[in-house]
Structure formats: structure tokens, C-alpha cells
Nucleic acid binder design. Sequence first.
DNA 1: TATTGATGTGTTATACTATACGGTATATCG
DNA 2: CGATATACCGTATAGTATAACACATCAATA
Lengths: 158, 158
Amino acid sequence: MTQQAFQAHDHKSCIADGVAAAAQSCAARKLQLTKVRQRVLEILLSDHKAMGAYEILDVLRAEGLGSQPPVAYRALEFLTKHGFAHRIERLNAFIACSHLNDPHAPIFLICRSCNRVVEAESDPTKGEIGRAAQQSGFVIERAVREAEGLCPECADAA
Amino acid sequence: MTQQAFQAHDHKSCIADGVAAAAQSCAARKLQLTKVRQRVLEILLSDHKAMGAYEILDVLRAEGLGSQPPVAYRALEFLTKHGFAHRIERLNAFIACSHLNDPHAPIFLICRSCNRVVEAESDPTKGEIGRAAQQSGFVIERAVREAEGLCPECADAA
DNA sequence: TATTGATGTGTTATACTATACGGTATATCG
DNA sequence: CGATATACCGTATAGTATAACACATCAATA
């Protein structure tokens, strides 16, 4: 785990750094980080919670950047496809990536009390899923690994 | 992995055994395996694919067992709550449990080509997710572990 | 320059997934 | 029996996601 969003940290830098890293990555890969895409990334970076597509759309709409669902979904598709954001299946929601470096296979820890989400990372072909796949000759292309529970603070409070 | 649904097997017994085991388990736990609940379980057992709630509802409707979404969702809630079926988050769909014995933490291998799904099993507190949680003091209550890819047969075909 | 193709945006309409709520019936148990 | 909980059904509505078509931009190229 390279980032501990359950703990206090310099959050402003999360946004600035995230956008800067994405911009650089897009430039290097000849991808277009357009206005809407960048704004959606900023919105996702603005906290460590997962946001629904319609929640994001509400923000875009208030800013005149688009009013219909496809606007949000298209931006989210771009961001997730290129690794700048991830989809949390359990929540039908999206979150900015916290490992904007290399291709990676995220694990998410979702606090059901404060709704914060932390992204960890580890090779899915290793571990239990990989072992199960190997036993049956299954070829993994994508792995969903999400844990739901209580973050340290909420666990203490309870 | 105690069952290899990617391979040929006596499928009729999947249904019969599954229903019998569920009936027995319900009796022991004083749960009501009502007509609709049992029928939904049979439908899920009838193949090793995940089925959407509305797909199940279509069958119920054709049989006069109910016509509105809540009918299917209520039965599915019962079945998943008591471990007779599982929800596949990645697919917004449901599948019969193949380990009708003890409480367990399933792993699913989803073939994107033939849509078959196999359930494996292993303790989620161990392995990568547990390690990530432990590092941050996160308390896991439920884990989603789903791999998408190609089953042996479809991988060979490709 | 004119054409073409690829990509992005905007909008309308619709499909798919899921639950809240109100009312009735049935089971269980003191 | 009466009380409580559980299951049921249906209506209505909420929440999530995509198909399809029109228009704009830009880069490569005939």
C-alpha cells in the first residue's frame, strides 16, 4: 500500500499531483485529457470516496460541462480504460487511481461506515485467485478484489 | 476447488443434490424453503451460468409464480443471505452455491466467452486482501473476489 | 485543397437493475 | 386463541447504463 487514505494526509496534493501525473501520462501516450475528462478526474480526486456516475454528472451539470448521462460515462470510460480511475463493482461507483505509475491490479478496502476507499495493490495471478485459476486452467484477464468492512477509525469508534 | 463446472459432469445431480441439501439445511435452521425460493434455486442450479434477476423473473412469470421484480429479488435475497446462492458483483447476477456445506468465502472464475462461472473457495483473511487489510488496520466483513477471463475450453478454442 | 477517417461532444430515447411502500396471508409460539 | 414475525403480492419509482444519431474537430493524405 503506497497511500494511506484512512489516515490524515496532505489532501490538496492528491488532486494536484493526480492531475499533473495524468496530464503527463496522456502526453506521453498521445491521449487527449480533454476538459470534461480532466474535470471528472479532479472530481474523483477531490475525496477518497467512490462516486456514482450520476453524482459526478450533477457536478458537471452545475458547471455547464454536460448534462446527460453519456457525458459522465464517456469520461469515466476513458479514465478507467487508461488506468486513471477504477470502477468499484460492489458500489457501482468510481474512484481515482492512487497508483498513477504502472499498470497494476488494485485491491480496494471499502469502509461501510465513513465510505472512504483505499486502494492497495498486488499481483492477482499470485495469491488465492491465481491459485484457483491455475488449478482449473482458467486464464485471468481481469480480477475484481474488493473488501468491505470498517476502517481503523470507524472500527475504533464502534 | 471442490467442483469443476468447466468440465463435463453429471449435471442432473447438481440440481437434485443442490435442492436436497438446501431443503435439509433449511429444515435444520428453521428456514422456510418456500415454493418460489426453491424454484429460484432450481433455476439457478439448472446451469453453471450467472443469471440476472429479470432473467429469473421471466421464468417465474412463465410458470405463474410471480410477475413483478420484488418476487425474484426477495427470493434471491433469501438464497444469498443464507448461503444457497451468491451474487456476482461484476455481472449484477446470481449463481447457485456449489459448496452447500459450511460458511465460506467464495472466489468466482467467470468465462467471458461461454459465460460459465465456477466457484472456488478460500479464506479471504489470508492472501493478498487480508494482508492489505492488516497493514492498514482494516476489518474485513465481506470480500468480493471475482476473476474474469477464459475457461480452459474457450482458451483452447481461441 | 478536398477527402477521409478517427475521435470527441451533445442529445434523445430507452434498457437494465433494484428497492420503498402498502396491504394481505400464513406460520409460529406463548 | 391472540400476538408477533415472516412471507407474499403488486404498484410505483429510483438508480444505473447504453444505443443510436448528429455535429464538430483535427490530422493524414489523395
